[in-house]
Amino acid sequence: MNMDEREYRELLGRSSLGGDAARRLRERTPRSDSPSTEGNLALAPYGRTDYDRYARLYLAARAGDANAQRTMITELNELLWRAARRSGLDRESAADVVQIAWLRLWRLENELYQPRAVVKWLLTTVRRESWRVAGIQRREIPSDPIELPESPVEGPGPAEYSDQEREAVRRAFLAQPERCRRLLAFVAAFDRPDYDAIAEALGMKRGSIGPTRGRCLDRLRRTLLDDPAWNGGADSDTTD
């Protein structure tokens, strides 16, 4: 006789996956049965990328199905772009790198040996290309160990802030804890940040994003006010 849902739940609770600590550990990995919690990315039932679906789309696109190709690009673009941005590229360079990854995929003479690996293949290509581009950009700017690279997040232009002030903001931002930097970068990177995606990506509760963001901005403000370079910049503004 087939097991029913009640019996299954009861057995799962008594099984090696069912202990309190095991349950709390499992909960550290988010579960999602809906297909829209990681940007537009399609997720498998266990909350991760649906590799089978992308394998099917990839094979269809290779066979000339333009809809399949469009679907893949629409759904995966944001994920790839974020990966490039996380590698330290600015918006334009990130977009270029994503384009390169797509071009390389479609121009491959033979299809991927393992179509299920197409998402990982794209991510790896984007990261490698991002590191290559970032390496070139770094080599183009002479630097010493303390000198900072250009900010990956676009900010107000030179007309609004002096170089000294922009440098102070960047320094203050980079001195914040990792959690704050990631949250602020996420919020700054999108015009209308999707709090569900942020919660998913940063492993935070949705409700805590707003208050945490406020605390992070407060810290950032305090760090900035403690920086003589920032105060110096403010003074020079007021004297103008």
């Binding site: 006789m1 087939n2 097991m3 849902e5 019996e7 299954y8 057995l11 799962l12 099984s15 996956l17 095991a22 550990l25 499992r26 909960e27 550290r28 990995t29 579960r31 039932p45 266990y46 909350g47 991760r48």
Partner: peptide, 28 residues
């Protein structure tokens, strides 16, 4: 649990749920 899942042919919603939980545990 394994016997119950085998009786379902290691398929269907209960098996999907079981695989989800095992994978989440494994990842954590």
């Amino acid at each position: 649990l394994v016997e119950g899942l085998a009786a379902c042919g290691f398929a269907g919603p209960l098996y999907v749920d079981f695989s989800t939980e095992m994978v989440r545990y494994g990842m954590s």
